[in-house]
């Protein structure tokens, strides 16, 4: 029972980080980034390459830091190359799905070309097991469970208190009024993508420390994040986070009690149920 909860919280934490980035971009720009999973993978590979003895061997701290800086840049570049040219054009929504799918294809094959298909893993930030409330768990799991809410809290504060965080929300809610306050739309979009990519990078490093690093490691979490944002309602950050933990826990429980192969069926059935009752997600707004 307690191991199910731990597993659920770990997945939920990772899904929350991934999905909140997707949701943020959707809220501000009205486009959906299908390369989000590939960004996550790229973050994990950069951290691995910088830290691992087979790469630059500079240690985990350097690896993680480099990865974070890389992610900020990567998010911005992705926006400039794959999103900006189509914003405001007809069918931007669909075209950006396509360009970001192509971006994902590019990044995954680049990783495959550069690093090969062999499984890699990041060193764990913390090792050993700890016991919390009578439950033994890997220290790395505990780190993920604690770190994710801290980061998500940080994101919430950034969006509520900082000048540029408020600007991201303002654009999402009323972009003409935002322009009339002098908010630089372009720069704010860039920033939104950078923040979103940074969150994906953190998730990538977490997954890399717990599981394996492969060129396609991003696609499963991304598809789970799709479920999360549909559950939670795109653009609603609290909804997204709640849905992420719910899905993490449902997934863990169904893998444990019903069997891992039936988990997708369980998730999909829950999704259908939710959508039949609330077509805009659990906490979503009508468009």
């Amino acid at each position: 029972m307690s191991s199910v909860i731990v597993a659920g919280l770990v997945s939920g934490s990772i899904y929350a980080l991934i999905a909140s980035g997707l949701s943020l971009v959707w809220g501000a720009l009205g486009v959906f980034n299908f390369a989000h999973g590939a960004l996550l993978m790229a973050g994990a590979f950069v951290a691995w390459f910088v830290s691992d003895p087979a790469g630059l061997d500079l240690g985990l701290t350097a690896g993680v830091l480099t990865s974070m800086i890389f992610m900020i840049a990567a998010g911005g570049v992705l926006y400039v190359l794959l999103v900006r040219p189509w914003l405001g054009k007809p069918a931007a929504e669909l075209t950006v799905i396509m360009t970001t799918v192509a971006g994902a294809m590019f990044l995954e094959n680049l990783a495959l070309y550069t690093f090969g298909a062999r499984l890699k893993a990041l060193d764990q930030v913390v090792t050993g097991t700890v016991s919390v409330a009578g439950t033994a768990m890997q220290a790395q799991n505990l780190l993920v469970i604690v770190l994710a809410p801290v980061l998500l809290g940080g994101l919430a504060l950034f969006l509520k208190l900082s000048k540029h965080g408020l600007a991201i929300r303002a654009i999402a809610q009323n972009d003409e009024a935002a322009r009339l306050l002098g908010i630089r739309i372009e720069r704010t979009y860039f920033l939104t993508f950078a923040v979103s990519a940074l969150l994906a990078g953190v998730a990538g490093v977490m997954i890399g420390g717990l599981f394996n690093i492969t060129p396609s490691m991003g696609s499963d979490p991304l598809l789970r994040a799709f479920l999360v944002v549909v559950f939670g309602g795109l653009g609603s950050l609290p909804g997204t986070v709640i849905a992420a933990y719910l899905i993490g826990l449902i997934e863990a429980a169904s893998s444990y009690y019903i069997g891992i192969y039936w988990t997708p069926v369980v998730l999909f059935s829950v999704l259908i149920l939710v959508l039949l009752v609330r077509p805009n997600g659990l906490l979503g707004r009508a468009p």
């Binding site: 799709f226 479920l227 549909v230 999909f268």
Partner: peptide, 15 residues
């Protein structure tokens, strides 16, 4: 098709 736009994409992907 109870959903709109991007949600359709996400749900069908999940399918």
């Amino acid at each position: 098709l109870r959903l709109r736009g991007i949600y359709v994409a996400l749900v069908t992907f999940a399918f």
